[in-house]
Simulated scan of single mutants.
Amino acid sequence: MIQVWSWPTPNGHKVHIALEELELPYEVVPVNIGAGEQFKPEFLAITPNHRIPAIVDDDAPGGPLSLFESGAILIYLAEKTGKLMPTSPAARYHCLQWLMFQMGGVGPMFGQYGHFANYAVEKLPYAIERYTNEVARLHRVLEAQLAKTKWLAGDSYSIADIATFPWIRNPERRNIDLAAYPNVKRWHDSIAARPAVERGVAVLAENQRKGAMTPEEREVMFGAKQFAAR
């Protein structure tokens, strides 16, 4: 059984979707990041970076294995099952390069946009403009790739698609109209319609924040507690 320590965020949804696609049995351990549960000792024992998601696989080759970082988890699950990642060297590296594109570009840049545009108390025009432009640029990169290929890494649906999709969902949160990126929209809609994806994004959906962040949540997420030595 795989334990998934998670919360309904794009990074959490990546792993939920992969587990559903791979039909692996798993148990969800909710980690309420707005309430500070990511700082509890039992979670820090799995991930010293106190970020979701993390997994513990009791059935890992060689014995129980704990992993943090969503990209590493996706690679592990793909290699454990022999699915969702090509095995030929060139195709495998194409898949990994698009996974790294998400990990190093899409996730961090979209996250920075979300912080400065939606959560920061002081609205800094320079920061908002910078990340607005970067979000649009990354959509253009995806559009160019998906004009040439059905899926991000080629002809096969893979962990690169699973990693990127949750960040493209809900484009209105980033002031993006997917109609301006028709190949991204085609790709997004194809993934959203997959039954395993529908199940994956439903995991912990009842805990999705509704409305504005409370002062207590803001302190936990962005205040001194976030940066305290542990």
Rank of each mutant, 00 (worst) to 15 (best):
D161N: 00
W151S: 03
R174S: 15
Q112M: 06
Q145P: 09
I75L: 12
G154C: 07
F110I: 02
L178P: 14
G114H: 04
K148V: 08
Q102F: 08
Y76W: 03
K80C: 06
E134C: 00
A180K: 14
A117D: 01
R186C: 04
S70A: 07
G154P: 09
W98D: 02
M85D: 06
I168W: 07
L84Q: 04
A179S: 15
A212K: 06
C95R: 04
N133M: 13
Q145Y: 12
R173K: 11
L124Q: 15
Q102H: 12
T132M: 09
C95F: 09
K83I: 10
W151H: 11
W167Y: 10
P125F: 03
S70R: 02
C95H: 10
C95V: 03
Y181L: 03
I176E: 04
N170Q: 15
R92A: 00
G114N: 06
P108N: 03
D189R: 07
F68S: 12
P86R: 04
V121H: 14
Y113E: 00
A120I: 04
Q97F: 13
P166W: 06
S88H: 15
N207R: 14
D161Q: 04
F68N: 06
F68H: 12
V197D: 06
E206M: 03
R194N: 05
G107R: 10
E69R: 08
G82T: 02
E129L: 08
Q145S: 00
T164R: 01
K210R: 15
G82W: 09
K210Q: 14
D177T: 10
N118G: 11
P89L: 04
A120E: 00
N207A: 15
G104T: 10
R194I: 00
I168K: 07
L99C: 00
K123Y: 02
S158A: 02
A144F: 13
L204C: 01
G105N: 08
Q208P: 14
V135F: 09
F101N: 01
C95G: 03
K80I: 04
A192D: 08
V106L: 11
P108V: 10
N207D: 13
I128A: 02
H188M: 11
P125Q: 05
R186Q: 02
V106R: 09
P171G: 05
K148S: 10
T81P: 10
L178F: 13
A144P: 14
Y119W: 13
T81W: 12
I159Q: 01
Y126A: 07
A196D: 05
A180V: 12
F110K: 05
Y126P: 13
W167H: 10
G111Y: 04
F68V: 01
G211A: 06
F116N: 08
S88Q: 15
Y157P: 10
V106M: 12
M85E: 09
L178K: 13
E79T: 05
A127G: 09
T149F: 14
L124D: 15
N207V: 13
Q102I: 06
H188Q: 11
D155H: 12
R137A: 01
A192N: 12
P86N: 03
I73D: 04
E143I: 07
I73C: 08
K123T: 01
A196P: 11
K150I: 14
Y181W: 13
A160G: 00
R199I: 03
Y113V: 00
G107Q: 07
I159E: 04
A193V: 07
F110T: 03
S158V: 04
G107K: 01
F116W: 11
